[in-house]
């Protein structure tokens, strides 16, 4: 379960151009939720996703992952939480350029200390599900944008994290691949009970999720 209590986040604090990116957010996300943060550009959905993902610090309030309060953790502990409990899908893929597709997908599993055979099997499983199993030996730069995005998704889901945070995951995919991605995400959510949180404008995602949380200028308007 993820719980946010009176979360506030500012950009350019105490400067004339100050932006109140998250305004007193109170929110509970139960286990196995399949949820979308939606809203216009700049409404704070990515900022909220990053705050939940222990990537960005907040200015006030508390965020709990189960019973752990993220703000009280050291950088080392927050990194460990990101590694062991979360999977990230970034809009800009963010793959490791010198590693092959296979190595990129298995990267987090390796960091988490999975066995080599287990990594190989899981990489193959996820890659064939996302139809990139014929590209396993390729380097990221040799792939199209859509293929790179699928590798990024595969990397996030391969280690079966408790939470997947996906920021515009379908932005570089065509409708067919977007649908496949959403089907896979839903299956993961239903079978494994993984919390999956999206930040997106995509109508397809809106139709696929079970809950939509709407933000406007950093404030929750519809939960």
């Amino acid at each position: 379960m993820i719980k946010l209590q009176n979360v506030n986040k500012y950009f350019y604090k105490d400067e004339p151009r100050e932006v109140h990116a998250l305004n007193d957010i109170n929110l509970t996300i139960e286990n196995a939720e399949f949820t979308l943060f939606s809203g216009a550009s700049g409404c704070g959905k990515t900022t909220l996703l990053n705050a939940i993902g222990a990537l960005d610090a907040i200015d006030s309030g508390k965020i709990f992952l189960d019973d752990k309060e993220i703000g009280s953790l050291s950088e080392h502990e927050r990194t460990a939480i990101r590694l062991n409990e979360m999977g990230f899908v970034f809009q800009a893929y963010n793959l490791v350029p010198v590693l092959s597709v296979e190595e990129n997908i298995g990267f987090i599993m390796k960091l988490r200390g999975f066995r080599e055979s287990e990594i190989k099997q899981r990489v193959l499983e996820v890659a064939s599900m996302l139809e990139i199993d014929n590209k396993l030996r390729s380097l990221p730069h040799a792939l199209s944008g859509g293929q790179q995005q699928r590798v990024a998704v595969a990397r996030a889901v391969a280690s079966k994290p408790k939470i997947i945070l996906a920021d515009e995951p379908t932005a570089n995919l065509d409708s067919k691949n977007s649908q496949k991605l959403m089907d896979m995400m839903r299956e993961l959510n239903e079978k494994e009970g993984v919390i999956i949180l999206f930040a997106s404008h995509d109508e397809l995602i809106r139709e696929s999720v079970r809950r939509v949380i709407k933000l406007n200028d950093g404030t929750l308007v519809d939960v």
């Binding site: 990537l55 950088e75 080392h76 990194t79 460990a80 939480i81 990101r82 590694l83 062991n84 979360m86 990230f88 970034f90 963010n94 793959l95 490791v96 350029p97 990267f107 987090i108 960091l111 990397r155």
Partner: peptide, 16 residues
Amino acid sequence: IREFGIMLSIGMQYKY
């Protein structure tokens, strides 16, 4: 620098 940022964000510890 971006690559290292990505590594940190997906959970690779600074020591690695």
